[in-house]
């Protein structure tokens, strides 16, 4: 194909990408209407010193880290059991783990309102058994957000870890076992290190997803557990404070880029080591 015809094929897509994504994003981040970039920077400086704003950033990062850890700890075992299973159920279970990726986040998160709400499953069970007098406040807590986000991103962790485990030669596990290693030892010395690049990718995707998710903190965190995403929405639509909205958007984007960058570097180092 000649360079000119390739360029013609490229141009319509490029135009859409520029108008529907790149140009507005750059303009919003660096030159919001009626506000100079100096004001955005100023607002960002306040954010990074103000205890309230810092609290929101820290809560977002903390929840992101907890969710990432939980998704790896729960997702890797699922992936490794399914990838190594001979059972005909393994395919069904894998489909069951992937299916939620197709399902609306609103529907998935709504389930936690039913489970954690004041008339919800957990409250009813606890009061019904006489363990507590009154149903504990579970909704609008950090715990609720963590549970909701783990549910949301676990399928992503499972499928990413699954392709990593599937690429590890099962002969290696067997060789280690044959040489006298216990199952536990073979798991930690063979399977985990060899799937590590995949685990890093899974962790990055989950973290980036968690610190930018909106539906879950909105429904399960309420106004008392603000995260960067819910805060950004309120700056944009309630207070219409463009400087603060852009500053929050920059913090969020930098956070995601930083983690993706670190994980890419770690991946490269792992590949050369």
């Amino acid at each position: 194909m000649r360079a000119r015809s390739s360029l013609l094929l490229l141009l319509p897509g490029l135009a859409f990408l520029l108008v529907g994504f790149l140009l507005p994003a750059v303009a919003m981040l660096f030159a919001p209407p009626g506000v100079g970039f100096a004001q955005v920077l100023e607002r960002m400086a306040t954010m990074l010193t103000d205890p309230y704003d810092l609290g929101i950033i820290w809560r977002t990062v903390r929840i992101g880290l907890i969710v990432t850890a939980l998704c790896v700890v729960l997702g890797f075992p699922i992936a490794s059991l399914l990838a190594r299973s001979q059972s005909r159920w393994a395919g069904v279970l894998l489909a069951l783990a992937i299916f939620p990726l197709l399902l609306s986040n609103v529907v998935r998160t709504f389930g936690w309102l039913v489970v954690l709400g004041s008339n919800g499953v957990i409250g009813q069970v606890l009061t019904g058994l006489g363990i507590v007098e009154e149903a504990p406040q579970l909704l609008y807590t950090e715990l609720a957000i963590v549970l909701g986000l783990v549910q949301l991103f676990l399928p992503l962790a499972v499928i990413t870890c699954y392709s990593a485990v599937a690429q590890v030669d099962p002969g290696l596990d067997e060789a280690a076992r044959g040489l006298g290693a216990s199952r536990t030892r073979a798991f930690w010395t063979i399977l985990v290190p060899l799937s590590l690049p995949g685990i890093v990718v899974a962790a990055t995707l989950v973290f980036a997803g968690s610190v930018t998710a909106y539906t879950t903190p909105y429904l399960l965190g309420g106004s008392s557990q603000r995260l960067l995403s819910t805060q950004l929405f309120s700056y944009a639509s309630v207070t219409v404070d463009w400087a603060a909205a852009s500053a929050t958007a920059i913090v969020m984007t930098v956070l995601v880029f930083l983690v993706s960058g670190i994980s890419t570097l770690a991946g490269r180092k792992g590949a050369t080591a």
Binding site: P77, I78, L96, R108, G111, V114, L147
Partner: peptide, 19 residues
Amino acid sequence: AGTLAVLGYVVMIVPILFV
């Protein structure tokens, strides 16, 4: 690993069933 996997499935699927 089995226990963690079951816990994972519970978190992924059970809330949807309650809906």
